[in-house]
Amino acid sequence: MKLKQLEGLVGGLQQFSNPKIELEQYPTGPHIASRMLYTAENSFGDVSNKIVADFGCGCGTLGAAAALLGAEHVIGIDVDSQALELAYQNAEDLEVDIEYIQCDVKNLRWRGQSVDTVVMNPPFGTRKKGADMDFLSMSLKIASQAVYSLHKTSTREHVRRAALRDFNASSAEVLCELRFDVPQLYKFHKKKEVDVAVDLWRFVPKH
């Protein structure tokens, strides 16, 4: 599948109608989502025929992109039942098979490194300090091949240090810097739309 095609398909998905700020629900835009999964597949072969988990899946954009690129088994995990309902609907509309589990990512307990690849757009930890690190730590325990994640560029050194020193990563690489456009979603947003610089990371867990 071509990048443009993928972007078009995930661009048609429904987004949150009532996003919850305590969960930092910001939808992953089709531009970022398609590039993230396209890179994972075409540069590293981490998607097709693999087991892929989408942590904090929200309305399910990243998981849907993985399924479209031929992942054998996709699992979306989110704590919010409304988000899961939307994700479920989105998967039905795209006619892709995706499994969902309702769980707080930091309370997950899985048997060993049972997933090949984790993709995620974690909460950036602006509302709940350390939420991004909880996601990263858990994903590196569960993935056997690679973790793809977005983190604010301003936290780059912190993310690298934490991943390599504390969280079981054998390598941590910034694949590219992207602009995450945050539309005016919440009441406390004063500007119409803001661009946040984010890094697309690829982490490789230790075995």
Binding site: V79, S81, L84, Y88, Y100, I101, Q102, C103, D104
Partner: peptide
């Protein structure tokens, strides 16, 4: 609906 609820 096929979704396990593992909330604690």
């Amino acid at each position: 609906k096929g979704i396990p609820n593992m909330l604690l």
